[in-house]
Design a protein around this nucleic acid. Sequence first.
DNA 1: CCTTCGTTTCGTAATTTTACGAAATACGAA
DNA 2: TTCGTATTTCGTAAAATTACGAAACGAAGG
Lengths: 99, 99
Amino acid sequence: MEEVKEFYSVEEKKLARYAKALSHPVRVYICDILSKQACCYSGDLAEEVPIARSTLSQHLKELKNSGLVQGEINPPKIKYCLNKENWAEAQQLFKEFFK
Amino acid sequence: MEEVKEFYSVEEKKLARYAKALSHPVRVYICDILSKQACCYSGDLAEEVPIARSTLSQHLKELKNSGLVQGEINPPKIKYCLNKENWAEAQQLFKEFFK
DNA sequence: CCTTCGTTTCGTAATTTTACGAAATACGAA
DNA sequence: TTCGTATTTCGTAAAATTACGAAACGAAGG
């Protein structure tokens, strides 16, 4: 039972998931910042980026759901950082994909 | 005039565009095939992939619009291949992005 | 306890994506 | 010219994405 036979490979689905997370310029921008300097707070981003804070929050949520980014509670702020493990996985998947 | 001041960089927008093209497993799958073996026909893909031909055609159109794939008319078929130039650009963008 | 700060969730609306089958198109062959 | 093959476009519908402001939330400070 339960033998649905998935057509796409695990790698293909993972890559599509990461690609989806990066399919909006603001999310690429956020990852650029996090990968270059370090972690940062939602409020810091909100001051730079030309979108509403609530919209930014949604994008951060998507990045968290994809696994590329994680948020550490640091009251009263929340510090966002790359999830190094998943970042490395995505890097590897794209590298393999393109070669 | 026309000085709208774009917030995101050209690279960020390009990467987001390529990422969007790869944000669905079937499109990753198609690119996998094209990058591994060679070119192929829509009909060949249609026999493998578990979606309607018209839906497949839409996905191919998106890949064409992104620039990653190109189609050569070869009556009565259409042969799809990677666009090597844009493929290399995407590869480079992702490489830079992840490092 | 009440307020403030930083952030997210809710409610909503417009747009885009994904999917299908039917119809249209393009072209070579009969 | 009519037929058959290969593929795309059209029409449509359901679901997801993107965006905003208002409201809610949790923790620290007065």
